[in-house]
Design a protein around this nucleic acid. Structure first.
Length: 493
RNA sequence: CGGGGUGUAGCGCAGUCCGGUUAGCGCAUCUGGUUUGGGACCAGAGGGUCCCAGGUUCGAAUCCUGGUACCCCGACCA
Protein backbone atom coordinates (compact mmCIF):
# COMPACT_ATOMS: atom_id res chain seq x y z
CA UNK A 1 0.00 0.00 0.00
CA UNK A 2 2.66 2.46 0.97
CA UNK A 3 4.45 1.36 -2.18
CA UNK A 4 2.05 3.20 -4.44
CA UNK A 5 3.81 6.51 -4.37
CA UNK A 6 7.20 5.48 -5.67
CA UNK A 7 6.24 2.38 -7.63
CA UNK A 8 7.30 2.58 -11.22
CA UNK A 9 5.09 1.81 -14.14
CA UNK A 10 6.23 -1.62 -15.34
CA UNK A 11 8.12 -1.45 -18.57
CA UNK A 12 5.66 -3.83 -20.18
CA UNK A 13 2.90 -1.21 -20.06
CA UNK A 14 4.44 1.49 -22.19
CA UNK A 15 8.10 2.17 -22.52
CA UNK A 16 7.67 5.90 -22.85
CA UNK A 17 5.44 6.06 -19.79
CA UNK A 18 7.95 4.00 -17.85
CA UNK A 19 10.77 6.25 -18.99
CA UNK A 20 8.97 9.43 -17.98
CA UNK A 21 8.04 7.94 -14.65
CA UNK A 22 11.59 6.92 -13.96
CA UNK A 23 13.08 10.29 -14.83
CA UNK A 24 10.69 11.99 -12.44
CA UNK A 25 10.76 9.47 -9.60
CA UNK A 26 14.53 9.05 -9.63
CA UNK A 27 14.69 12.82 -9.25
CA UNK A 28 16.62 13.43 -12.44
CA UNK A 29 14.42 16.04 -14.08
CA UNK A 30 10.93 17.37 -14.56
CA UNK A 31 9.00 19.28 -17.18
CA UNK A 32 9.09 23.01 -16.65
CA UNK A 33 6.51 25.72 -16.97
CA UNK A 34 7.93 26.48 -20.42
CA UNK A 35 6.60 24.08 -22.99
CA UNK A 36 9.23 21.66 -24.23
CA UNK A 37 11.81 22.74 -21.68
CA UNK A 38 13.10 20.65 -18.83
CA UNK A 39 14.35 21.30 -15.33
CA UNK A 40 17.36 19.16 -14.54
CA UNK A 41 17.21 18.46 -10.82
CA UNK A 42 20.29 18.30 -8.58
CA UNK A 43 20.59 14.52 -8.72
CA UNK A 44 20.32 14.43 -12.50
CA UNK A 45 22.70 17.33 -12.81
CA UNK A 46 25.26 15.58 -10.60
CA UNK A 47 25.41 12.77 -13.16
CA UNK A 48 25.71 15.24 -16.02
CA UNK A 49 28.52 17.02 -14.16
CA UNK A 50 30.47 13.78 -13.92
CA UNK A 51 29.98 13.21 -17.63
CA UNK A 52 31.12 16.73 -18.32
CA UNK A 53 34.24 16.31 -16.25
CA UNK A 54 35.35 13.11 -17.94
CA UNK A 55 34.58 14.44 -21.40
CA UNK A 56 36.36 17.69 -20.69
CA UNK A 57 39.44 15.78 -19.55
CA UNK A 58 39.36 13.76 -22.75
CA UNK A 59 39.11 16.92 -24.85
CA UNK A 60 42.05 18.47 -23.04
CA UNK A 61 44.09 15.30 -23.50
CA UNK A 62 43.48 15.54 -27.24
CA UNK A 63 44.74 19.12 -27.31
CA UNK A 64 41.53 21.12 -27.08
CA UNK A 65 40.74 24.25 -25.07
CA UNK A 66 37.46 25.75 -23.89
CA UNK A 67 35.99 29.08 -24.96
CA UNK A 68 32.58 30.71 -25.01
CA UNK A 69 30.63 32.33 -27.82
CA UNK A 70 27.39 34.37 -27.77
CA UNK A 71 23.94 32.91 -27.34
CA UNK A 72 22.52 35.17 -30.06
CA UNK A 73 23.28 34.85 -33.73
CA UNK A 74 22.40 37.65 -36.16
CA UNK A 75 19.91 36.31 -38.67
CA UNK A 76 22.20 37.15 -41.57
CA UNK A 77 24.93 34.84 -40.22
CA UNK A 78 22.66 31.87 -40.27
CA UNK A 79 21.75 32.35 -43.91
CA UNK A 80 25.33 32.38 -45.17
CA UNK A 81 25.60 28.64 -45.55
CA UNK A 82 22.69 27.41 -47.66
CA UNK A 83 22.38 23.79 -46.44
CA UNK A 84 22.94 24.85 -42.86
CA UNK A 85 20.11 27.38 -42.79
CA UNK A 86 17.77 24.97 -44.52
CA UNK A 87 18.48 22.35 -41.88
CA UNK A 88 17.71 24.59 -38.92
CA UNK A 89 15.33 27.29 -40.17
CA UNK A 90 12.20 25.38 -39.13
CA UNK A 91 13.14 25.17 -35.47
CA UNK A 92 14.67 28.49 -34.51
CA UNK A 93 13.62 30.80 -31.69
CA UNK A 94 13.87 34.40 -32.87
CA UNK A 95 14.40 37.55 -30.83
CA UNK A 96 12.65 40.50 -32.46
CA UNK A 97 12.45 43.13 -29.70
CA UNK A 98 14.61 44.33 -26.84
CA UNK A 99 12.15 46.00 -24.50
CA UNK A 100 8.82 45.60 -22.73
CA UNK A 101 6.49 48.27 -21.47
CA UNK A 102 3.46 48.47 -19.22
CA UNK A 103 0.28 47.65 -21.00
CA UNK A 104 -1.78 50.88 -21.29
CA UNK A 105 -4.87 48.98 -20.11
CA UNK A 106 -3.04 48.07 -16.91
CA UNK A 107 -2.91 44.31 -17.48
CA UNK A 108 0.79 43.65 -17.09
CA UNK A 109 3.43 44.18 -19.77
CA UNK A 110 3.49 44.07 -23.54
CA UNK A 111 6.28 44.09 -26.11
CA UNK A 112 7.18 47.67 -26.91
CA UNK A 113 6.63 48.03 -30.66
CA UNK A 114 9.10 50.94 -30.63
CA UNK A 115 11.85 48.57 -29.58
CA UNK A 116 12.01 46.42 -32.68
CA UNK A 117 15.47 45.14 -33.54
CA UNK A 118 16.84 46.21 -36.87
CA UNK A 119 18.13 42.72 -37.42
CA UNK A 120 16.51 39.81 -35.63
CA UNK A 121 18.67 37.61 -33.40
CA UNK A 122 18.44 33.84 -33.50
CA UNK A 123 18.92 31.90 -30.29
CA UNK A 124 21.68 29.50 -31.33
CA UNK A 125 20.53 26.07 -32.48
CA UNK A 126 24.26 25.35 -32.92
CA UNK A 127 27.19 27.74 -33.13
CA UNK A 128 29.01 27.09 -36.40
CA UNK A 129 28.02 30.45 -37.86
CA UNK A 130 28.88 32.73 -34.95
CA UNK A 131 32.10 30.83 -34.36
CA UNK A 132 33.26 30.95 -37.96
CA UNK A 133 32.44 34.61 -38.07
CA UNK A 134 34.75 34.94 -35.05
CA UNK A 135 37.45 32.65 -36.44
CA UNK A 136 37.76 34.94 -39.44
CA UNK A 137 39.41 37.45 -37.15
CA UNK A 138 41.67 34.87 -35.53
CA UNK A 139 43.13 33.32 -38.64
CA UNK A 140 45.58 34.97 -41.00
CA UNK A 141 48.52 32.65 -41.39
CA UNK A 142 49.21 28.92 -41.37
CA UNK A 143 50.89 29.66 -38.02
CA UNK A 144 47.43 30.40 -36.52
CA UNK A 145 46.25 26.87 -37.26
CA UNK A 146 44.95 24.58 -36.04
CA UNK A 147 42.36 26.12 -33.74
CA UNK A 148 40.92 23.47 -31.44
CA UNK A 149 38.11 25.04 -29.38
CA UNK A 150 35.32 23.53 -27.43
CA UNK A 151 32.34 25.29 -25.85
CA UNK A 152 30.02 24.09 -23.08
CA UNK A 153 26.71 25.76 -23.70
CA UNK A 154 22.97 25.55 -24.08
CA UNK A 155 21.23 25.56 -27.44
CA UNK A 156 17.61 25.91 -28.49
CA UNK A 157 15.79 23.92 -31.13
CA UNK A 158 12.07 24.52 -31.21
CA UNK A 159 10.92 20.94 -31.62
CA UNK A 160 7.23 20.27 -31.97
CA UNK A 161 7.33 17.30 -29.70
CA UNK A 162 9.72 16.78 -26.85
CA UNK A 163 10.80 14.10 -24.38
CA UNK A 164 12.91 14.71 -21.33
CA UNK A 165 16.63 14.42 -22.11
CA UNK A 166 16.01 12.88 -25.57
CA UNK A 167 14.57 15.92 -27.27
CA UNK A 168 13.94 19.16 -25.44
CA UNK A 169 13.53 22.67 -26.78
CA UNK A 170 16.59 23.80 -24.85
CA UNK A 171 19.42 21.43 -24.04
CA UNK A 172 22.93 21.47 -22.64
CA UNK A 173 25.82 20.22 -24.70
CA UNK A 174 29.37 20.74 -25.73
CA UNK A 175 30.31 21.68 -29.25
CA UNK A 176 33.84 21.47 -30.54
CA UNK A 177 34.75 23.65 -33.50
CA UNK A 178 38.13 23.20 -35.11
CA UNK A 179 39.96 24.89 -37.97
CA UNK A 180 42.73 23.21 -39.95
CA UNK A 181 45.17 23.94 -42.73
CA UNK A 182 44.60 20.71 -44.62
CA UNK A 183 41.71 18.46 -45.55
CA UNK A 184 43.39 15.37 -44.15
CA UNK A 185 44.05 17.01 -40.80
CA UNK A 186 40.38 17.99 -40.51
CA UNK A 187 39.19 14.50 -41.43
CA UNK A 188 41.59 13.02 -38.89
CA UNK A 189 40.21 15.37 -36.25
CA UNK A 190 36.60 14.38 -36.96
CA UNK A 191 37.53 10.70 -36.75
CA UNK A 192 39.56 11.27 -33.60
CA UNK A 193 36.61 12.87 -31.85
CA UNK A 194 34.08 10.20 -32.81
CA UNK A 195 36.53 7.77 -31.27
CA UNK A 196 36.68 9.88 -28.11
CA UNK A 197 32.87 9.74 -27.96
CA UNK A 198 32.85 6.01 -28.55
CA UNK A 199 35.43 5.53 -25.83
CA UNK A 200 33.43 7.65 -23.42
CA UNK A 201 30.14 5.91 -24.16
CA UNK A 202 31.56 2.43 -23.73
CA UNK A 203 34.08 2.88 -20.95
CA UNK A 204 32.31 5.42 -18.78
CA UNK A 205 28.63 5.14 -19.58
CA UNK A 206 28.88 1.40 -20.24
CA UNK A 207 26.75 1.98 -23.33
CA UNK A 208 27.92 -0.06 -26.33
CA UNK A 209 27.87 1.95 -29.55
CA UNK A 210 28.40 1.39 -33.23
CA UNK A 211 30.60 3.92 -34.95
CA UNK A 212 29.83 4.80 -38.49
CA UNK A 213 29.16 7.34 -41.21
CA UNK A 214 25.78 8.93 -41.82
CA UNK A 215 24.07 8.55 -45.17
CA UNK A 216 23.55 11.76 -47.15
CA UNK A 217 19.95 12.04 -45.94
CA UNK A 218 20.92 11.94 -42.29
CA UNK A 219 24.02 14.09 -42.58
CA UNK A 220 24.45 17.32 -40.60
CA UNK A 221 23.25 20.40 -42.45
CA UNK A 222 26.38 21.87 -43.99
CA UNK A 223 28.72 18.89 -43.50
CA UNK A 224 30.52 16.82 -46.11
CA UNK A 225 30.67 13.82 -43.82
CA UNK A 226 29.02 13.05 -40.50
CA UNK A 227 30.42 10.41 -38.15
CA UNK A 228 28.10 9.05 -35.51
CA UNK A 229 27.86 6.71 -32.55
CA UNK A 230 24.61 4.75 -32.43
CA UNK A 231 23.30 2.99 -29.35
CA UNK A 232 20.45 0.51 -28.94
CA UNK A 233 17.85 1.10 -26.25
CA UNK A 234 15.97 -1.59 -24.35
CA UNK A 235 12.77 -1.06 -26.30
CA UNK A 236 14.49 -1.83 -29.59
CA UNK A 237 14.86 1.74 -30.81
CA UNK A 238 18.21 3.26 -31.72
CA UNK A 239 19.55 6.48 -30.27
CA UNK A 240 22.07 8.68 -32.00
CA UNK A 241 24.34 9.53 -29.12
CA UNK A 242 27.05 11.74 -30.56
CA UNK A 243 28.19 13.15 -33.88
CA UNK A 244 31.38 14.50 -35.37
CA UNK A 245 31.30 16.38 -38.65
CA UNK A 246 33.84 17.00 -41.34
CA UNK A 247 32.65 20.34 -42.68
CA UNK A 248 35.10 20.69 -45.56
CA UNK A 249 35.56 24.33 -46.53
CA UNK A 250 31.85 25.15 -46.47
CA UNK A 251 31.94 27.47 -43.49
CA UNK A 252 35.27 28.97 -44.48
CA UNK A 253 33.70 29.87 -47.81
CA UNK A 254 30.53 31.23 -46.21
CA UNK A 255 32.47 33.42 -43.77
CA UNK A 256 35.44 34.08 -46.00
CA UNK A 257 38.04 32.55 -43.71
CA UNK A 258 41.37 32.11 -45.46
CA UNK A 259 44.96 31.78 -44.36
CA UNK A 260 48.33 32.31 -46.02
CA UNK A 261 49.95 28.95 -46.53
CA UNK A 262 53.67 28.28 -46.29
CA UNK A 263 54.01 29.17 -49.97
CA UNK A 264 52.42 32.57 -49.29
CA UNK A 265 49.19 31.83 -51.15
CA UNK A 266 45.72 32.27 -49.60
CA UNK A 267 43.75 29.09 -48.92
CA UNK A 268 40.35 28.32 -47.42
CA UNK A 269 40.40 26.80 -43.95
CA UNK A 270 39.14 23.25 -43.31
CA UNK A 271 36.67 22.67 -40.50
CA UNK A 272 35.13 20.14 -38.15
CA UNK A 273 32.51 20.30 -35.47
CA UNK A 274 31.44 17.69 -32.95
CA UNK A 275 29.02 17.49 -30.07
CA UNK A 276 27.31 15.45 -27.42
CA UNK A 277 24.41 16.62 -25.29
CA UNK A 278 22.29 15.86 -22.26
CA UNK A 279 20.72 13.32 -24.59
CA UNK A 280 23.46 11.06 -23.28
CA UNK A 281 21.50 11.04 -20.02
CA UNK A 282 18.62 9.52 -21.93
CA UNK A 283 20.93 6.90 -23.37
CA UNK A 284 22.22 6.09 -19.92
CA UNK A 285 18.72 5.68 -18.49
CA UNK A 286 17.29 3.66 -21.37
CA UNK A 287 20.26 1.33 -21.65
CA UNK A 288 20.60 0.06 -18.10
CA UNK A 289 17.51 0.72 -16.00
CA UNK A 290 15.07 -1.93 -14.81
CA UNK A 291 11.68 -2.05 -13.09
CA UNK A 292 13.29 -1.15 -9.75
CA UNK A 293 14.57 2.08 -11.21
CA UNK A 294 17.79 3.53 -12.44
CA UNK A 295 20.99 1.51 -12.82
CA UNK A 296 24.05 3.72 -12.95
CA UNK A 297 27.53 2.72 -14.06
CA UNK A 298 29.84 3.17 -11.05
CA UNK A 299 32.02 5.66 -12.93
CA UNK A 300 29.11 8.07 -13.33
CA UNK A 301 27.18 7.45 -10.12
CA UNK A 302 27.20 10.53 -7.87
CA UNK A 303 26.95 8.15 -4.93
CA UNK A 304 28.83 4.90 -5.53
CA UNK A 305 28.17 3.30 -2.17
CA UNK A 306 25.38 3.93 0.28
CA UNK A 307 25.63 2.60 3.81
CA UNK A 308 22.50 1.95 5.82
CA UNK A 309 22.43 1.10 9.52
CA UNK A 310 19.86 -1.13 11.14
CA UNK A 311 19.56 -0.63 14.85
CA UNK A 312 17.25 -1.34 17.77
CA UNK A 313 18.22 1.60 19.95
CA UNK A 314 20.41 4.67 20.12
CA UNK A 315 23.18 2.85 21.89
CA UNK A 316 23.43 0.31 19.10
CA UNK A 317 23.30 3.05 16.49
CA UNK A 318 26.24 4.73 18.22
CA UNK A 319 28.31 1.59 17.83
CA UNK A 320 27.30 1.22 14.20
CA UNK A 321 28.11 4.88 13.55
CA UNK A 322 31.60 4.36 14.92
CA UNK A 323 32.24 1.28 12.83
CA UNK A 324 30.79 2.86 9.70
CA UNK A 325 32.93 5.96 10.15
CA UNK A 326 36.02 3.77 9.90
CA UNK A 327 34.72 1.96 6.85
CA UNK A 328 33.71 5.22 5.20
CA UNK A 329 37.16 6.64 5.76
CA UNK A 330 38.72 3.59 4.19
CA UNK A 331 36.38 3.67 1.19
CA UNK A 332 37.10 7.35 0.61
CA UNK A 333 40.80 6.63 0.74
CA UNK A 334 40.18 4.33 -2.22
CA UNK A 335 38.51 7.19 -4.09
CA UNK A 336 35.00 5.85 -3.62
CA UNK A 337 32.11 8.27 -3.03
CA UNK A 338 30.08 7.17 -0.03
CA UNK A 339 26.87 8.26 1.57
CA UNK A 340 25.99 7.12 5.07
CA UNK A 341 22.25 7.42 5.61
CA UNK A 342 21.57 7.03 9.31
CA UNK A 343 18.58 9.34 9.35
CA UNK A 344 15.88 7.87 11.55
CA UNK A 345 12.97 9.44 9.74
CA UNK A 346 12.84 6.56 7.26
CA UNK A 347 12.85 2.84 7.83
CA UNK A 348 15.59 0.70 6.29
CA UNK A 349 13.22 -0.88 3.79
CA UNK A 350 12.25 2.54 2.52
CA UNK A 351 15.89 3.49 2.11
CA UNK A 352 16.69 0.28 0.24
CA UNK A 353 14.00 0.99 -2.31
CA UNK A 354 14.92 4.65 -2.58
CA UNK A 355 18.60 4.09 -3.37
CA UNK A 356 17.74 1.34 -5.81
CA UNK A 357 15.42 3.74 -7.58
CA UNK A 358 18.30 6.20 -7.78
CA UNK A 359 20.67 3.62 -9.17
CA UNK A 360 23.32 3.60 -6.45
CA UNK A 361 25.60 0.71 -7.53
CA UNK A 362 26.47 -0.74 -4.13
CA UNK A 363 24.67 -0.78 -0.80
CA UNK A 364 26.22 -1.80 2.49
CA UNK A 365 23.98 -2.66 5.40
CA UNK A 366 25.23 -2.91 8.95
CA UNK A 367 23.11 -4.13 11.83
CA UNK A 368 23.51 -5.75 15.21
CA UNK A 369 24.30 -9.11 13.64
CA UNK A 370 27.12 -7.58 11.63
CA UNK A 371 28.59 -5.82 14.65
CA UNK A 372 28.82 -9.16 16.44
CA UNK A 373 30.20 -11.09 13.47
CA UNK A 374 32.45 -8.37 12.04
CA UNK A 375 30.50 -8.58 8.75
CA UNK A 376 28.55 -6.32 6.45
CA UNK A 377 25.82 -7.07 3.92
CA UNK A 378 26.79 -6.08 0.39
CA UNK A 379 24.07 -5.54 -2.20
CA UNK A 380 24.75 -4.88 -5.86
CA UNK A 381 22.23 -2.91 -7.88
CA UNK A 382 22.92 -4.48 -11.25
CA UNK A 383 22.11 -8.05 -10.23
CA UNK A 384 19.94 -7.25 -7.18
CA UNK A 385 21.92 -9.88 -5.26
CA UNK A 386 23.32 -9.62 -1.77
CA UNK A 387 25.93 -11.41 0.26
CA UNK A 388 27.47 -11.09 3.69
CA UNK A 389 31.19 -10.42 3.75
CA UNK A 390 33.83 -9.70 6.35
CA UNK A 391 34.52 -6.09 7.31
CA UNK A 392 38.21 -6.78 6.94
CA UNK A 393 39.43 -5.51 3.59
CA UNK A 394 35.96 -4.20 2.75
CA UNK A 395 37.31 -1.23 0.79
CA UNK A 396 39.29 -3.44 -1.57
CA UNK A 397 36.30 -5.70 -1.90
CA UNK A 398 33.99 -2.81 -2.79
CA UNK A 399 36.45 -1.24 -5.19
CA UNK A 400 36.73 -4.53 -7.01
CA UNK A 401 32.96 -4.93 -6.99
CA UNK A 402 32.44 -1.48 -8.53
CA UNK A 403 34.75 -2.47 -11.39
CA UNK A 404 32.82 -5.69 -11.83
CA UNK A 405 29.51 -3.83 -11.95
CA UNK A 406 30.86 -1.39 -14.52
CA UNK A 407 31.95 -4.34 -16.65
CA UNK A 408 28.81 -6.34 -16.09
CA UNK A 409 26.32 -3.69 -17.11
CA UNK A 410 28.31 -3.02 -20.26
CA UNK A 411 28.31 -6.70 -21.08
CA UNK A 412 24.61 -6.98 -20.40
CA UNK A 413 23.86 -4.07 -22.73
CA UNK A 414 26.27 -5.44 -25.31
CA UNK A 415 24.68 -8.88 -25.25
CA UNK A 416 21.24 -7.36 -25.53
CA UNK A 417 22.31 -5.43 -28.59
CA UNK A 418 23.98 -8.44 -30.19
CA UNK A 419 21.00 -10.72 -29.71
CA UNK A 420 18.63 -8.15 -31.18
CA UNK A 421 20.83 -7.30 -34.16
CA UNK A 422 19.79 -9.26 -37.25
CA UNK A 423 21.30 -9.72 -40.64
CA UNK A 424 18.73 -9.85 -43.41
CA UNK A 425 18.93 -10.21 -47.20
CA UNK A 426 15.42 -9.75 -48.48
CA UNK A 427 12.96 -6.89 -48.35
CA UNK A 428 10.21 -9.19 -47.07
CA UNK A 429 12.37 -10.36 -44.20
CA UNK A 430 13.38 -6.78 -43.44
CA UNK A 431 9.77 -5.62 -43.09
CA UNK A 432 9.10 -8.53 -40.78
CA UNK A 433 12.18 -8.18 -38.58
CA UNK A 434 12.01 -4.41 -38.20
CA UNK A 435 8.83 -4.92 -36.17
CA UNK A 436 10.81 -6.80 -33.55
CA UNK A 437 13.05 -3.82 -32.84
CA UNK A 438 16.83 -3.84 -32.72
CA UNK A 439 19.40 -3.17 -35.41
CA UNK A 440 19.24 -4.74 -38.85
CA UNK A 441 22.27 -5.15 -41.07
CA UNK A 442 21.26 -5.16 -44.72
CA UNK A 443 22.52 -4.19 -48.13
CA UNK A 444 21.46 -0.87 -49.65
CA UNK A 445 22.24 0.56 -53.07
CA UNK A 446 23.51 3.85 -51.66
CA UNK A 447 20.81 6.09 -53.11
CA UNK A 448 18.74 8.59 -51.13
CA UNK A 449 15.62 7.42 -53.03
CA UNK A 450 15.89 3.85 -51.77
CA UNK A 451 16.58 5.09 -48.25
CA UNK A 452 13.53 7.33 -48.40
CA UNK A 453 11.39 4.46 -49.69
CA UNK A 454 12.51 2.22 -46.82
CA UNK A 455 11.73 4.97 -44.33
CA UNK A 456 8.26 5.54 -45.71
CA UNK A 457 7.41 1.86 -45.74
CA UNK A 458 8.87 0.88 -42.37
CA UNK A 459 9.81 4.05 -40.43
CA UNK A 460 13.32 2.61 -40.26
CA UNK A 461 16.28 4.81 -41.13
CA UNK A 462 19.89 4.12 -41.90
CA UNK A 463 21.57 4.74 -38.57
CA UNK A 464 25.01 4.55 -40.07
CA UNK A 465 27.38 2.85 -42.46
CA UNK A 466 29.51 1.03 -39.87
CA UNK A 467 33.22 1.78 -39.89
CA UNK A 468 34.19 -1.56 -38.36
CA UNK A 469 32.94 -5.01 -39.18
CA UNK A 470 31.82 -6.86 -42.26
CA UNK A 471 32.77 -5.18 -45.55
CA UNK A 472 31.50 -7.90 -47.85
CA UNK A 473 29.73 -6.46 -50.89
CA UNK A 474 26.28 -7.67 -51.94
CA UNK A 475 23.09 -6.47 -53.58
CA UNK A 476 20.49 -4.02 -52.29
CA UNK A 477 17.54 -5.78 -50.66
CA UNK A 478 15.10 -3.40 -52.35
CA UNK A 479 16.48 -2.69 -55.81
CA UNK A 480 18.97 -5.53 -56.34
CA UNK A 481 21.64 -3.03 -57.33
CA UNK A 482 25.18 -3.54 -56.04
CA UNK A 483 26.08 -2.59 -52.46
CA UNK A 484 29.58 -2.13 -51.05
CA UNK A 485 28.76 -3.28 -47.53
CA UNK A 486 25.88 -3.88 -45.15
CA UNK A 487 24.53 -0.78 -43.44
CA UNK A 488 22.83 -0.44 -40.09
CA UNK A 489 19.07 0.11 -40.00
CA UNK A 490 16.71 0.72 -37.08
CA UNK A 491 13.77 2.72 -35.93
CA UNK A 492 15.19 5.58 -33.95
CA UNK A 493 14.43 8.24 -31.39
C1' C B 1 -1.70 21.67 -37.38
C1' G B 2 -5.01 16.87 -37.09
C1' G B 3 -7.03 12.73 -33.56
C1' G B 4 -7.84 11.38 -28.40
C1' G B 5 -7.64 12.40 -23.12
C1' U B 6 -7.27 15.16 -18.59
C1' G B 7 -7.88 19.61 -15.17
C1' U B 8 -11.03 18.19 -7.77
C1' A B 9 -5.81 19.36 -0.97
C1' G B 10 1.51 19.53 -1.71
C1' C B 11 1.42 14.75 -5.03
C1' G B 12 -1.64 10.71 -7.21
C1' C B 13 -6.75 9.96 -7.94
C1' A B 14 -12.47 8.70 -7.07
C1' G B 15 -17.01 11.30 -7.60
C1' U B 16 -19.33 13.88 -13.38
C1' C B 17 -22.91 9.43 -17.35
C1' C B 18 -28.22 9.96 -14.08
C1' G B 19 -27.63 17.77 -10.53
C1' G B 20 -29.52 17.16 -4.07
C1' U B 21 -26.46 15.86 3.24
C1' U B 22 -20.87 18.92 5.71
C1' A B 23 -16.93 16.93 -1.74
C1' G B 24 -14.17 11.82 -0.60
C1' C B 25 -9.74 8.31 -0.73
C1' G B 26 -4.32 7.00 -0.79
C1' C B 27 0.44 9.18 -0.12
C1' A B 28 2.81 13.39 2.05
C1' U B 29 2.52 17.00 6.45
C1' C B 30 1.80 17.95 12.00
C1' U B 31 1.03 15.71 17.36
C1' G B 32 1.61 11.44 20.68
C1' G B 33 3.12 6.45 21.29
C1' U B 34 5.07 1.65 19.72
C1' U B 35 8.74 0.26 16.01
C1' U B 36 13.41 -0.50 12.69
C1' G B 37 17.41 -7.19 8.60
C1' G B 38 12.93 -5.02 2.16
C1' G B 39 8.80 0.85 1.01
C1' A B 40 6.10 0.17 9.66
C1' C B 41 1.64 0.41 12.87
C1' C B 42 -2.08 2.67 16.10
C1' A B 43 -4.68 7.10 17.65
C1' G B 44 -5.63 12.08 16.51
C1' A B 45 -5.13 16.90 13.61
C1' G B 46 -4.59 20.50 9.72
C1' G B 47 -5.10 21.33 4.61
C1' G B 48 -10.16 22.80 -1.16
C1' U B 49 -11.54 29.83 -5.59
C1' C B 50 -13.69 21.31 -7.57
C1' C B 51 -9.00 25.22 -14.36
C1' C B 52 -11.49 30.24 -15.90
C1' A B 53 -15.91 33.01 -17.59
C1' G B 54 -20.88 33.01 -18.65
C1' G B 55 -25.62 30.34 -18.77
C1' U B 56 -29.73 26.75 -17.15
C1' U B 57 -31.80 25.59 -12.16
C1' C B 58 -34.94 26.23 -5.84
C1' G B 59 -29.98 23.93 -5.98
C1' A B 60 -24.03 22.84 -10.27
C1' A B 61 -17.57 19.54 -9.25
C1' U B 62 -21.78 17.20 -12.03
C1' C B 63 -25.87 19.88 -17.40
C1' C B 64 -25.05 23.81 -21.66
C1' U B 65 -21.78 27.59 -24.26
C1' G B 66 -17.12 29.79 -24.81
C1' G B 67 -12.12 30.06 -23.27
C1' U B 68 -7.60 28.09 -21.24
C1' A B 69 -3.70 24.79 -19.59
C1' C B 70 -1.38 20.22 -19.65
C1' C B 71 -0.66 14.97 -21.33
C1' C B 72 -0.79 11.02 -25.08
C1' C B 73 -0.89 9.46 -30.46
C1' G B 74 0.38 11.45 -35.44
C1' A B 75 2.78 15.24 -38.61
C1' C B 76 8.01 17.56 -37.46
C1' C B 77 13.11 16.26 -35.75
C1' A B 78 21.28 15.53 -36.72
Amino acid sequence: MAKELKELTPRSVSYSQWYNDLVIKADLAENSAVRGCMVIKPYGYAIWEKMQRYLDDMFKETGHVNAYFPLFIPKSFLSKEADHVEGFAKECAVVTHYRLKNNPDGTGVVVDPEAKLEEELIVRPTSETIIWNTYKGWIQSWRDLPILCNQWANVVRWEMRTRMFLRTAEFLWQEGHTAHATEQEAIDEAVKMINVYGDFAENYMAVPVIKGIKSANERFAGALETFTIEAMMQDGKALQSGTSHFLGQNFAKAFDVTFMNKEGRPELVWATSWGVSTRLMGALIMTHSDDNGLVLPPKLAPIQVVIIPIHRNDEQLEKINERVAEITKELKKHGISVKYDNGDNKKPGWKFAEYELKGVPVRLVMGGRDLENNTVEVFRRDTLSKETVSQDGIADYVKDLLDKIQENIFKKAYDMRETTTKTVDTWEEFKEKIEEGGFILAHWDGTPETEEYIKEETKATIRCIPLDGDKTPGVCMVTGKPSLQRVLFARAY
